[in-house]
């Protein structure tokens, strides 16, 4: 069953971000996966809950142009001039990578993610995303950067007076996509996240996990090459969290680079993907196939 997602991937979205050296895996029969996935999440007892994730332990080769590149980035909030939120951080993230950013509250995780979407500007150093230096980027260009970055937050950030369909369509309306594109893409992405049947529901009629899947759908509907998640499972229970995790994993399988800040130890340990640990604004660990803590590093 051809999907919009696969179509774009086959055309190979000519972009620095997705243009990884490795041929990207595509979603096959996305609808069916989404359906079974959706039911698994809604009924935690169905048994697939602790099934291994498809991409467990996958390592993305560090070659080619990085999607994200931080070069000696320091960020000092004016409120705390003596305590930099990030201190001389250098980091490369390559296309197709799935990176967990872990650390205590206040270690600089959110600051790091906010730098990527240029909600804040680095005090010193260069943040390069999709080949553009965000430190030097002019303000009017920022919206066009954000169209290439999907964002998912702990608090979903859905509009209560719009339906599920309306919320996802809103993301496309905002960037001036024609109605025909919206009508084709929104149901497609809602099928992907397993919410095709709840299209006309309002967010307050959905469970937390479903709401988060709506916000993932909204982040992905424009098919951005980079997905930034700030504790997407922060206030969901473990079973629902795993459903979201699998969804993000599958999105990553299509070649989308995912950067995810999290406190969820179990999730990080079960995925065995790249882990960047922050501590008081420094990168204290950057590890392929990492775990949440030092003790379980492979």
């Amino acid at each position: 069953m051809p999907s919009h997602f696969r179509d774009t991937e086959q055309q190979g979205v000519p972009d620095v971000i997705t243009g990884g050296p490795e041929p990207v895996q595509t979603i096959t029969a996305s609808t069916d996966i989404a359906r079974s996935e959706g039911s698994a999440v809604d009924a935690p007892a169905s048994g697939s809950l602790y099934a291994p994730l498809e991409s467990k332990g996958k390592v993305v080769p560090r070659t080619g142009t990085p999607t994200i590149s931080l070069r000696g980035v320091t960020l000092i909030y004016p409120a705390q001039p003596n305590k930099p939120a990030l201190d001389d951080v250098s980091l490369d993230i390559y296309p197709g990578d799935f990176v967990f950013v872990v650390g205590h509250s206040g270690s600089g995780k959110s600051t790091f993610l906010r730098l990527l979407t240029r909600e804040i500007k680095a005090t010193k150093g260069d943040v390069i995303v999709a080949g553009q230096n965000l430190t030097k980027m002019r303000n009017w260009k920022v919206p066009y950067l954000r169209r290439q970055i999907g964002t998912v937050y702990q608090d979903f950030k859905l509009l209560p007076d719009k339906t599920v369909y309306g919320n996802v369509a809103f993301a496309l309306e905002c960037i001036g996509k024609p109605r025909s594109v919206i009508e084709a893409q929104v149901p497609e992405v809602l099928r992907l996240v397993g919410l095709a049947e709840k299209m006309d529901n309002f967010p307050d009629q959905l469970s937390g996990g479903e709401q988060q899947r709506v916000s993932v759908a909204r982040a992905m509907v424009n098919r951005p090459p980079l997905l930034v998640c700030d504790e997407p499972t922060g206030n969901l229970d473990p079973a629902i969290s795993l459903g979201i995790m699998k969804l993000l994993d599958r999105i990553n399988q299509t070649g989308t680079t995912v950067v995810m800040a999290t406190h969820d130890r179990e999730m990080v340990d079960s995925m065995r993907r790249r882990v960047v640990a922050l501590e008081a604004g420094h990168v204290v660990r950057d590890q392929e196939r990492g775990g949440y803590g030092f003790y379980d590093a492979l």
């Binding site: 919206p143 954000r146 290439q148 970055i149 950030k157 809103f170 993301a171 905002c174």
Partner: peptide
């Protein structure tokens, strides 16, 4: 806030 998030121009 959401409009800015998804990249709507000013």
């Amino acid at each position: 806030g959401i409009m800015r998030l998804v990249g709507a121009s000013n």
